[in-house]
Design a protein around this nucleic acid. Structure first.
Lengths: 213, 213
DNA sequence: CCTAACTTGGCACCCGGTGTCAAGAATGAC
DNA sequence: GTCATTCTTGACACCGGGTGCCAAGTTAGG
């Protein structure tokens, strides 16, 4: 069966490299499914589009669709996880003597740039999230994963020594910064994408706590 | 049909009073369904319990269950909305010259007390949310409704005059405070309910911004 | 008591998601 | 090139949450 000892170590859930060709084709199929799906969603709405339709439009069966994505939501929000990791990485890369709040602001520069560079795509996605409650809920859950990725780096910043197991502060800081980012997104969406994402985020975050030391 | 003109005004979605008796029995049935459902969920898990089981245990059909609750999640998270309104009301009741951040802290006193007064029930609920991703997602979505209830009152505090349509600050403040509350809940849960909710919330919020003027 | 309004259960149905299986295609060893 | 192993695929059945519909029962109120 699966998950057995293999060359001396056990692997779980992740297939080991799986031959670069197969991995590439898999990526390609995933990409096309995303394109096809997003096109259908944009045209006739997320809820009004069945998984079967997407699969059919991509030339496969519903059953095969679920071999490429864990769920319908995954098709839309699959990237979120990796973006969160990038943000956490950016936070880790900030100078150690920088206070948490400005460091968090800088860590979000990456996603700000991403929105600035492709505002149309971002607008479509945000609009879809906004009028699809189930999708919004799912995204909030994935966002709350971002928090957990940020926590360890904040923890190091707050208490350089040792572990304080029941300290709410790193979680609070990460969550607060995330809330500012979400407020930014909402306001930017309400403005139809005309306002500057970076300036909005500056406004939002400095309304909660001062950004400059 | 429904939703027609009736005595001169149109009503939408809400039945007008619907005879106090029927309303009372309806409340009673909802209450019993909640009790029965929560008991089953606590015993055998949320996902492992079907709506049919809950309905059966309460002596009714699945179809009727969905006449009392919009969804399975609604059985668990139905109260959330009204709690959010209470918090918003508490915020509105704070003195007008109090800065937003301490005012938000005080607005949460209500829910802090609620957790303090029934820690067992709170623990059970939090644990259930924590190991049921779908439920967690749904709760985050409902929490984001709290934000919107808080926004108008914060808006009044920030800019006493007129409307600034594209101001991210009220949303950011409300979201940040909520994030502190959620961090508090998470930490309290991790401590097995031993720590003081009020002190944790003080810690969390003052890590983000100073609470005392 | 009688009628109009509401409630109920049962049924069929939709959709997202999963287990299973048999057939087909690619891979890799010889 | 052959052959066995492995991966991929589609089809089918199934589950559970959720809804539309309808016929029968219950209640409210004149």
């Amino acid at each position: 069966m699966r998950c057995q000892i293999w060359h001396g170590y056990t692997w779980r859930m992740t297939k080991p490299a799986a031959s670069p060709l197969r991995e590439r084709t898999r990526r390609a199929v995933r990409g096309e499914l995303m394109d096809v799906g997003m096109a259908l969603f944009a045209r006739q709405g997320y809820d009004a589009t069945t998984v079967e339709e997407v699969a059919q439009a991509a030339g496969m069966s519903k059953r095969s669709f679920f071999r490429y994505f864990d769920s319908k939501e995954d098709l839309v929000l699959g990237n979120q996880e990796s973006i969160g990791e990038e943000v956490a990485q950016a936070l880790a890369g900030r100078p150690a003597d920088e206070p948490p709040w400005p460091a968090l602001r800088r860590a979000f520069d990456l996603v700000v740039e991403r929105m600035d560079s492709a505002p149309d795509r971002a607008l479509i996605l945000l609009r879809m999230l906004n009028d699809t409650p189930g999708l919004m809920a799912s995204q909030l859950a994935r966002r709350s994963r971002w928090r957990e990725l940020l926590v360890p780096h904040l923890h190091a910043r707050l208490t350089p020594e040792g572990a304080s197991p029941h300290d709410p502060r790193p979680l609070a800081l990460a969550g607060a910064a995330l809330a500012c980012y979400e407020a930014t997104q909402a306001t930017w969406l309400a403005s139809g994408g005309t306002l500057s994402v970076g300036l909005l985020l500056d406004d939002a975050m400095s309304a909660v706590a001062p950004l400059e030391t």
